[in-house]
Structures are given as structure tokens and as C-alpha cells.
Design a protein around this nucleic acid. Sequence first.
DNA 1: TATTGTTATACTCTATAACTATA
DNA 2: TATAGTTATAGAGTATAACAATA
Lengths: 149, 149
Amino acid sequence: MPPTAQQVSALDLVLELAMLLDDDLTQHLGRQGLTVSRAHLLWELGRAGPVTQQALARAMGVSARNITGLVDGLAATGFVARQAHPTDRRATLVTFTKKGEKTVQALQRGQQELAQQLFTGWPDHQFGTFVTGLREVLARLRLASQEGR
Amino acid sequence: MPPTAQQVSALDLVLELAMLLDDDLTQHLGRQGLTVSRAHLLWELGRAGPVTQQALARAMGVSARNITGLVDGLAATGFVARQAHPTDRRATLVTFTKKGEKTVQALQRGQQELAQQLFTGWPDHQFGTFVTGLREVLARLRLASQEGR
DNA sequence: TATTGTTATACTCTATAACTATA
DNA sequence: TATAGTTATAGAGTATAACAATA
């Protein structure tokens, strides 16, 4: 039995939302000289403080080689710097420059602004039901993703 | 004035949903020998029938050069073929192979299945409020994106 | 003169495998 | 022997600019 038309068009809305968010993010970051991947690395760095490239690779779920490239780019554009690890001479610590630190703070502010723009003024029950719905969709999507393996 | 914690965590949920959807899509398409960009092209082709590469470039919002590369890849893997345009000898018509046609149909079925998995069994009022919320978020996001230009 | 698609060139993200320096 | 990061190599997506064929 096929899904209802309402179900299909609800998924269309979700997919359109995902695309728009991605486009918006790409534009926004591009204006600051960043890509989505590089911003992701900055974000992790903001969460975990100075860390090794290995730690970044694990946290972001990408290869070590990939981190080398992202750090190269971020260092060349002045967002991060490499520092010697104090005890392990094989390892490198990735740290913020002043510019990088300010940029991460700006990204955080930008996210807060967006949260406000999207959700200010919603009736309480609508907001609550929407959030509950999001959680339900996320839970089901995680299940569906696992099945597909 | 900053946003509420609820607003920020609602945006977190939306962002997580977007990421999960993208990952899920990438995995699912990868199993069929497709990338997200190539599947996007197939999807457009399914919507609009045999079309020129220029038409695809405009519909997808990417450069003509990019379309050349995507069609090269899809042709090499047997999803589409290039045909001479009947009246304009500059242009190329991109058409489905049998494999391409079946693949698009499978993608459409997959999307319907996902819609069902995500939304089956929701109470009517919850589903309705959720969809209304999605529309509201989309409308506000479009506004926010435009401002940022 | 304008348009269609390709070649030339370049940048980014991504991966695996081989290698160096260190644990 | 195992780990951290880099070099080597490769594929994919994306862009602009120059060019050929055709309108």
C-alpha cells in the first residue's frame, strides 16, 4: 500500500528544508571565506579546544588525510595554526588564531539569530508539537538508516 | 535579546535532521552507483523528459561545464545517453537508458517508502501541526536567506 | 552576434595506500 | 609493533574562460 499524498508532500517539505538550509549555510560561510567542511572543523575545535588532527578525524568521521587538507586550507587563510604537541612529538595540536576564534563566535551568534528568526512568536502548543514531531522523524529516520545496511 | 534555549535546541534538531537525511541519501544512492549530484540530474530528467544540457544547467542552477561532467559520468555508468537534437545541431539531448529509467522509478519508490516510514501512524492533529510548522519554518528561512544578500 | 557544448585550468572535498618520525 | 601526520594518487563536484560549431 502506497503512502498518502499528504505523507509524500510532507517529506517533500522536509527535503526542501534540508536543501535550503544547506544553500543558506554555504552562502553565509562563503562570505566569511569558509566552506561547510572547514566551518565544521572550526566548530569541533570550538567544542573541544586545541586538539590533535587524529581527534578531529574521529570527531568528524573523516580520514586523517582529509583533516590535513582542511587544516592546510584553514591555516593558509589564517583561521587556525599548528602547534607542537607538548608530550607527543608525532602529534600536532590545531589551535585557533584570533581571527579563527572571532569567526567561531560569530558563527555561534549567527546560529542563535537564525533560531530566533525561525521560531520567535510561535504559539506554545504549535512549537511544542513541532519539536515533538521533529524528534519522532529523527528517531524513525535513524531506524530507517540502520535498516539500510 | 538572545533566543530561548528551546529555540536553539529546535534549530539543532532541524540541522541534525538535514545532516542525517543527506547522509542517508548519500548511502542509499551510493549503493546504486550514484552520487547526489548525478541523482539530481536523473531526477530532473525524469521530470522534464529528454532535454538539452543547457536546460539541465538552468534547472539545476549549475554551470554548463558541470553538466558536461555529470552527463559524462552517467553515460559511462550506463544511466543516460546523448542523442543528437533533431533541429538544433549545436545541442545534445540527454535521454534515459533502460537502466536509467528503472533507476529513477526505484528512486521514486524509495522516496514513497521513506515518506511512509516517517509518517505512518501519526495522530492527525500532530501531523497537521507539524506540516504547518514546516511551512512556517521554510517561509521564514527563505526570508532570512534573501536578507543575507 | 549569440548560443551550445567542450577543452583548459583550477580549487575543494573525499578516500586508500605507502612512508617517515615517533611512541 | 602501533600511531600521527604527510606524500602520492585518484575520483568527484564545482567554477570561469577560451574555443569550435552552429543558429
